[in-house]
């Protein structure tokens, strides 16, 4: 079995998550080849075949051109699986490749299981096992689901190039909004999720954070709704944190949120729903109404 792994390069750097592709291939027991649009002075720690396209010519984001590069490498390697990370780069490029090849795409794989690949569904509350109908397939793997692996230092480099269709022009990056709190340094974070119901209830969460000497965090929906500033957002598109104590209040536990907080030393989740995915990473799941439990806990802590 052979895999073609599509690595990622952003703002002049090879992304560390690229090595998770090797971890996946190794669990699959598959041979590997790599495709990377990067810089020849910054090659991955890998000793197999590397198809390398020059990022100065091909750009960091140019999906039509990158699709042509992948198709070129597919032609040369004839892999069974073409594997991307399920990231803003991977989920954008993978369906283009699958559509061109008319092969199945299986998105956001979290495990290799008998009969196929396991993926999450219904906001990570449930699982599905999916298998491609043909012999070839495009796969995207969930960030953090497979261990990073390095396999040497000197890949065998084969250069590729392709012409841009010019349909799409990448204008550049816009930096993340400035952080007014550095959650990375907080020892205690008390985070608000959609379960707090409305913006007026944010002070209830802030009061518990204060009683515990910590900072306020938030899940994405709470930030999108404008209840809490973006600088407080925990998760893939916010901050990644690992405090001594993380208290998740009314947060169901979308994968993107879990990825940002699951390395916390101790996690307490408060949720009405006993089956909420946050329960998977929590040391303690308190099944209760946030708006009853949190004020009661705050009051008791103030008297401790």
């Amino acid at each position: 079995m052979k895999t073609l792994l599509i690595g990622e390069y952003r703002e002049g750097k090879l992304l560390e998550s690229t090595y998770e592709l090797l971890g996946f291939a190794s669990q699959l027991g598959a041979e590997t080849a790599f495709l990377l649009v990067a810089n020849e002075f910054q090659l991955p720690a890998y000793d197999g075949m590397l198809y390398l396209a020059d990022v100065d010519i091909c750009g960091e984001y140019n999906p039509d051109l990158h699709k042509k590069l992948v198709l070129d490498a597919v032609k040369r390697e004839n892999p069974d699986y073409i594997v991307f990370l399920h990231s803003s780069y991977g989920w954008d490029l993978a369906p283009r490749v699958a559509a061109s090849l008319k092969v199945a795409q299986i998105s956001e794989i979290i495990a290799i299981v008998p009969g196929g690949f396991e993926v999450g569904s219904c906001n990570a509350k449930m699982r599905r096992t999916v298998k491609p109908n043909g012999t070839k397939a495009v796969l995207t793997i969930q960030a953090g689901a497979f261990p990073s692996e390095r396999t040497g230092t000197s890949p065998k480099v084969q250069k590729l190039t392709a012409e841009s269709t010019g349909a799409l022009e990448f204008l550049g990056y816009e930096a993340a909004e400035k952080k007014d709190v550095d959650l990375g340094k907080a020892e205690v974070i008390v985070s608000a999720g959609r379960g707090i119901g409305k913006k007026d209830n944010v002070p209830v969460i802030a009061a518990l954070a204060k009683a515990l000497g910590g900072e306020v965090g938030a899940s994405r929906p709470v930030v999108d709704a404008g209840w809490v500033e973006h600088s407080h957002q925990v998760g893939t598109t916010g901050q990644t944190v690992s405090p001594k104590l993380y208290v998740a209040c009314g947060i169901s536990g979308a994968i993107q949120h879990l990825a940002g907080m699951k390395k916390s030393d101790f996690i307490i989740a408060i949720n009405k729903d006993k089956d909420a995915p946050i329960g998977e990473v929590a040391d303690v799941l308190v099944v209760a109404d946030v708006l009853q439990f949190v004020p009661a806990l705050t009051q008791k802590l103030q008297n401790v």
Partner: peptide
């Protein structure tokens, strides 16, 4: 994109 960065296209 990841980490709150945006790509303009």
């Amino acid at each position: 994109l990841e980490g709150g960065i945006k790509g303009v296209v």
